[in-house]
Each structure stands twice: as structure tokens, then as C-alpha cells.
Amino acid sequence: MLDRPLVVSGELSWLGGDRLQRRVEHPQQETSTIADGEVTQQREGRSPRHFSLKRAPQLQVLLDSFVALLGGDAARLQQAFEVRQEGDARGAWTLTLVPRDARVAKTVASIRIDGYANASRCMHLQEADGDLAVDLLGPLAARMPAEPTREALQALCQSTP
């Protein structure tokens, strides 16, 4: 759909429970909140948009994986995904999550999280239609290239800090 990748930067915070907030600062200010099964999107100078989480399976997956990862809830992770772990828990590791729900799998093919020791560094959301969303987390976020390519991001994620 797009000729070149879309780059946004901001903050993703876990508000506890099933609540997640995503604040985008660049290129456009926007705050999205997932709470109580509903997504609220607030953009500067516009009225907020609401929609149900059910209608955005991609977000449900994101929420499930984030909350389970951040909360250290292995059972929840196992329930929603087929989990595959590679690498070294003290060095570089990769966690691959494949949604168990067939309906969800129609939009989200898999989630891959790259990390080093006890920190997650990148999150790759592979959509079923071939689109890929890559989130650089923590210190890596500052190193987002201006004109990113899949290959460059791949290298960045798997580099040693």
C-alpha cells in the first residue's frame, strides 16, 4: 500500500491490568488507549474515535503479548500463542509467538521479540497480508534510521548492545 515504511516515535506504557497506552509524538501527536475492550484514539484538534478491540485482532494480540510479557504471565502467553524460544537467556534471544486463534491468525501471522539478557529490544508484528510492523524498544528506539529498510532494522535488532 505504501512505497516506503512509515516511522513514528513515542511511548508505549502498560497501565496495569488489560490497559495499554500508546503515545505518539512524531510525526503527529496522538494518544491511543486500550482499556476495557475498547480502543480510544485521540488526535490533536479532532474528536476522539472509539472502536472495539474485537474489531482489531491485531491489537488484541499486541495487548495479550505485552501484558503477558511485562507481567511475566507465562500461562497467559501459552494460552494465546504457540511460543517458540531460541537463543541464550543471558545473551541474545528470540521469542516467536504464533496466535492460536484461527480468526486472529487471519490478520496477525506472528509476533517476534528480539532481546538481550533481561531486556526486550525489538518487537516484529508480521501481518498475514505481508505488512510488517517493527517496534524498537527501550534504548534502541533512539537509533531508528530516518529511511529504514527491513534489512537494516533486522540487523539493528540482532546487534549486541
Binding site: 491511543s32 484514539q41 472502536f51 482489531a56 485482532p57
Partner: peptide, 9 residues
């Protein structure tokens, strides 16, 4: 902006 937002899908 929508495409980079949670409403993308």
C-alpha cells in the same frame, strides 16, 4: 496517521 495507529487493521 491511521495506518500507523491501532486502527490500521
Amino acid at each position: 496517521d491511521d495506518l500507523s495507529s491501532p486502527a490500521a487493521s
